[in-house]
Design a protein around this nucleic acid. Sequence first.
DNA 1: CAGATCATATTTGTTGGACAATTGACAAGC
DNA 2: GCTTGTCAATTGTCCAACAAATATGATCTG
Lengths: 236, 236
Amino acid sequence: MTSRKGSSRNLHTQVVENLGESIVGGVFQPGDPLPGEAQLANELAVSRTVLREALKVLAAKGLIETRQKTGMRVRDSRYWNHLDADVLGWRCASLPTDDFVEKLVEMREIVEPAAVMTAARRREPAQLEAIREALAAMEDAQTLDEWAEADLHFHQAVLLATNNELLSSLFSVIETALGTFFVMSARTAKNFKYSLPHHRAVYEAIRRRRPNEAAAAMHTMIEDSRANMRKSRRRK
Amino acid sequence: MTSRKGSSRNLHTQVVENLGESIVGGVFQPGDPLPGEAQLANELAVSRTVLREALKVLAAKGLIETRQKTGMRVRDSRYWNHLDADVLGWRCASLPTDDFVEKLVEMREIVEPAAVMTAARRREPAQLEAIREALAAMEDAQTLDEWAEADLHFHQAVLLATNNELLSSLFSVIETALGTFFVMSARTAKNFKYSLPHHRAVYEAIRRRRPNEAAAAMHTMIEDSRANMRKSRRRK
DNA sequence: CAGATCATATTTGTTGGACAATTGACAAGC
DNA sequence: GCTTGTCAATTGTCCAACAAATATGATCTG
C-alpha cells in the first residue's frame, strides 16, 4: 500500500514530501551530510533532474543547504521556515509531540484574539458574510468531518477579515493546530459541536464591531480547546 | 549596472529573484499566464533545467502554479506565502507602500509584546545574555549601520528567548519592518539612538521576569517608531 | 620536519536534447 | 445538440555530457 493519498501528481512533489518528512522527522539530523545527488537519485529511483528540483524546494524552505564539493547538509532547525504549511504538516506527520502542540496553541493565543480585534474594526460586509456562512455550516454539520471543514473556514474567514495578508498567512499555523485538535479529540466525537456557542459569540462581536468582546470570546474558545486537549491527552 | 549585490552565486537563485520581484512587483498580475518554459528560458538566457528549478521554488512560495498544457499562472495573492523572507524582501524591493508599512507595524504590535511576555517567563540564562549583548552593541554603536545591525540582533534574541520556534520564525517580518524603518528614517540619522531607553526597559523587564512590564515597554517602543515613521513620511 | 603550494578528484552547477504524460481544443460522427 | 475521439501544445521526466568550485592529499620548499 505504497500509494500516496493523492500526492502522486508530480514526481518532484513526492520527493519533496519524502525528504521533507525525513528531515523534519529527524531521520537526517541537522549537520548531517546527505548522500550525494547521484546516490540519492538512485535510492529514490528518480532522475537527478527531478531530485534537484526537489532539493531546491527544500532549500527554499530552509531545510537544507548545498555547496559544491561539500554536498548537502541539513541546516540547523533555527533556520527552518517553521511557518511554512508543508513544514508544519511534516511535523505532524508522525503524531506531534505534546511540546509542539503546546507551541501551536500558544501561537493561536497570540494571533487569533488579536486577529478578531482587527477584524471587528475593519471587516467589510462581504467578509462578515463569509464568517456567517462558515458559522451556518458549523451549525448544519452532521459529521465530524463536516464540522472540521466548516471550523477551518470560520477561522480562515476571520483572518481574511483583518485585511492584513501577513496576518492571514498565519492560517497555516491555525490550520495545523486545529487539525491536530481534531485528530486528538476524535474519540470524543459525540459532542463535537460543543464549541459552537464560542464561535457564535465571536461572530456576534465582530458583527457588532466590539473588538474587546471578540478578543475575550476568542480567548475563551482557545483556552477551552487547550483544556480539552489536555484532558484527552491524559486519557491516552 | 546589472551586477547583483552578491546573489550571483547560482543561476537559479538569480532567476528566482528576478521572477519573484516581477510577480510580487505586479509586472505579472495574478491570473496572468506566464510565457511557456521554452520562451521564458530563452528570454532569460538560461537553460530550461535552471528555469524549472526556479519555477519550483516560486511554486513552493505559493506565487505560481503550473499545469500541463495550460502552462503557468500567477496565483491569487491570497495564496502567497507572505511571511516568507524572500517574498517580504521582494515587496520592499521598490519602496514599500504606506499601506504595507502599516501592516508590518501592525504585525509587530501583535507579535512582539506577546513575545516579550513569553520571553520574560521562559528565557534561559544564555538567552538573556544574548539580549544583553545586543543591547550593549546598541549602546556602543557609532554609525546608523552598526545600530541597525545591533537592533536586529536585539529583536531576534528576544524572539529566540521565547523558546517557541514558530514565534521565532516571525523574525522575517520584524526584520523587514525594521529594515524599512531604517531606510525611511535615514535622514533623521542625528539621534538614531533615541529608542535606546525603550530597549533597555524591555531588557530589564525580561531580566526581572516581569511579563506585563516587558509588554508595556515593547508596546511603547513600537508606538513610538510608528509615530516617527508617520512624521518622516509626512516630511517627504 | 613544518608549512606553503599545487594538482587532482569529487561534487554540485549548467546545458541541450529527447521522449512521455496530460489535457484543452477542435473536429467528426451519432 | 451531444458525445466521442483525434490532435497539438505544454509541462513532466530522463539522460549524458561538460563546467565550475573546492576539499583532500601530494608535492615542493624552507
